[in-house]
Computed example of a mutant assay.
Amino acid sequence: MVKLDVVDFAILKLLQENGKKPYTEIAKQIEVSEGTIRTRINRMLQDGVFEFIIHIDPNAIGLNVQAIIGITTKLGQQEAVARHLNQYPEVRFVAAFSGRHDLILQAYFSSNEDLVHFVNKELAKLDGIVSADVSIELKQYKDTFSYMAQTES
């Protein structure tokens, strides 16, 4: 496990607020050199602490239907089903969970018809799926990739 210190966490907090923030500005706010910021960010990137990504609003690109689908698999088929689900471009997230479903996935579709096709044609043909419980997002209250508490500066 990578050891992070106060400076690393301060850098991460500022990058989460604005991933395009210049290193010079981060350095001023944390009161360290720009070289320190550059070195720390490169180390954290190399160590896999974080990655720079673009968070696209699905609605802005025509993906107006978000579904959370709970999958129950046949015993011994969970891994194979998960690997197969990973191949679908509509599927953003797949994970094994304890509880009612063996796998839970998040997927985005242009329309309800596309979702129905995915469930009735694509999921239905996968050997190893016993059942699928589909929930459609009605209203979103929060969507973040921040795992650090937001504190006042």
Rank of each mutant, 00 (worst) to 15 (best):
M1S: 06
M1V: 05
V2K: 04
V2E: 01
K3H: 15
L4I: 04
V7E: 08
I11R: 04
K13C: 10
K13V: 13
L14D: 07
L15H: 06
N18C: 11
P22M: 03
Y23I: 04
E25F: 08
A27Y: 01
K28C: 00
I30L: 03
E31A: 02
V32S: 05
V32H: 03
S33I: 05
E34T: 15
T36S: 10
I37S: 03
R38G: 02
T39H: 13
M44Q: 00
L45V: 02
Q46E: 08
Q46L: 00
D47C: 12
F50W: 02
E51L: 07
E51K: 09
E51T: 10
F52M: 07
I53F: 15
H55Q: 03
I56E: 02
I56N: 01
I61R: 00
G62Q: 04
L63K: 04
L63T: 07
N64C: 09
N64V: 06
V65F: 10
I68K: 14
I68T: 14
I69G: 13
I71V: 14
I71W: 14
T72E: 11
T72W: 14
T73K: 06
K74G: 00
L75T: 14
G76P: 00
Q78P: 13
Q78M: 13
V81L: 12
R83I: 15
L85S: 02
Q87Y: 15
Q87P: 02
E90A: 12
V91A: 00
V91S: 05
R92W: 14
F93G: 06
F97S: 13
R100D: 01
R100S: 02
D102N: 08
I104D: 03
L105A: 09
L105P: 02
F109I: 01
S110N: 10
S110C: 11
S110H: 09
N112K: 13
D114K: 10
L115Q: 05
H117P: 02
F118Y: 04
F118P: 05
E122H: 11
L123W: 09
L123Y: 10
K125D: 07
K125P: 08
D127C: 09
G128D: 05
S131M: 06
D133E: 08
V134W: 08
I136M: 07
K139E: 08
Q140F: 13
Q140N: 11
Q140L: 14
Q140K: 14
Y141E: 11
K142P: 03
D143L: 07
F145S: 12
F145Q: 08
F145A: 09
S146K: 10
S146H: 11
S146A: 07
M148W: 11
A149I: 14
T151L: 15
